[in-house]
């Protein structure tokens, strides 16, 4: 197990190195940040001083090596726009996105999996048809539209929930969170709901497909023949057997939501990473883009590692070599 983890960490390093190279050259190619950083009417000496300060007069490979060297010392550079260390900037936005993504994916899983199991267990019932209709809706309705409708319904017409923003945060372990206060939760609810709709639809389909397959196997028939109740069969046998694809999708969705919750964060003016990356792209804030994408790669690698480790916990056949 330890060897496996070490191997994966080395893999992760290579992935992140390649990622940084691709991103660095890619970002270098899209445009010149000088046009945005320096007003056109600035005198030549200020122009040159700025260029030298950011090291933009060096060849790209030198800039890249310089960047790598700094990263190894924990320095991802300074944002051109915010004029503060990139890492501090990103970390200040991370908790907002983290709790939003976690609320969305966790909510979708906790609600979607039981609904999906039911729909797979009684595929012809009215409730199952309703659930499947809901899932088709979740797949096909665009996120931005649902977000607007949610705001219109719950914030504007009914006035139950705030229309946007993060609301007050509470410090927990030195990090600001919304979910610990009731008001924070009320701000979190709508954007999380908006983000979770698509994931809910996916979890329903996944759980339903798995359940339909497993409910017909001899394993379930044998459990029934032993007098085990239907509820216990679903809870103990079926849930455990369908958990591997669900954990996989949970990991992937969690990662991609962390990285790309842009639309929802914009609609609900949620001060998260998505907004930061869009802003940095429009203003060609190179250091933020590069650091952000490398961080996302690191997150994905970590999540995949955790998913792989949980496979072993869920399926004894994947635990190498031990036992009788």
């Amino acid at each position: 197990m330890l060897g496996f983890v070490i191997g994966r960490c080395l893999q992760a390093l290579v992935v992140m190195l390649v990622m940084s190279l691709v991103v660095f050259t890619g970002v270098y190619a899209i445009g010149n940040p000088l046009d945005i950083l320096i007003p056109p009417e600035a005198p030549q000496d200020i122009r040159e001083a700025t260029i030298a300060r950011f090291g933009l007069d060096r060849p790209i490979w030198e800039q890249y090596l310089y960047f790598l060297l700094n990263v190894l010392q924990g320095d991802f550079g300074r944002s051109f726009i915010y004029n503060m260390p990139v890492l501090t900037l990103i970390l200040s936005r991370l908790p907002a996105t983290l709790e939003l993504a976690l609320a969305a994916v966790l909510g979708a899983t906790l609600i979607g999996v039981p609904l999906g199991i039911y729909a797979g267990y009684r595929p012809t019932s009215v409730a199952a048809r309703l659930i499947m209709g809901l899932s088709i809706l979740g797949f096909s309705v665009p996120t931005f539209w649902v977000g607007l409708i949610l705001i219109l319904a719950f914030a504007v017409s009914l006035g139950w929930l705030p229309a946007g923003g993060r609301g007050p945060t509470v410090l927990l372990f030195g990090v600001p969170w919304s979910f610990t206060s009731l008001e924070g939760l009320s701000h979190l609810l709508l954007p999380a709901l908006n983000l979770s709709l698509f994931k809910l639809a996916m979890m329903i389909r996944l759980a339903r497909a798995g359940t339909r397959e497993i409910i017909l196997t001899d394993t379930v028939k044998f459990a029934r023949a032993a007098g085990i109740s239907e509820a216990t069969i679903l809870r103990r046998h079926v849930l455990k057997l369908i958990s591997i694809p669900i954990v996989t999708v949970f990991g992937l969705e969690f990662g991609s939501t962390l990285a790309f919750a842009v639309v929802t964060e914009t609609i609900f003016s949620w001060p998260g990473l998505g907004k930061l990356i869009i802003d940095s792209i429009t203003s060609l804030d190179r250091p933020v883009m590069v650091a952000y994408l490398i961080l996302i790669a690191a997150l994905f690698v970590t999540i995949n590692l955790l998913v792989d480790i949980s496979y072993a916990a869920l399926d004894p056949r994947l635990r190498g070599g031990r036992g009788a």
Binding site: T217, D218, T219, K221, F222, A223, R224, A225, A226, G227, I228, S229, H237, K240, L241, L314, D315, P316, R317
Partner: peptide
């Protein structure tokens, strides 16, 4: 359900398929 496993029980053909692998 109260009869199954208690008063009448059953053994299936393929033991590879009947037990839950996880």
């Amino acid at each position: 359900r109260q009869v199954r496993g208690k008063r009448i029980s059953m053994v299936f053909q393929d033991p590879m398929m009947t037990l839950n692998p996880v």
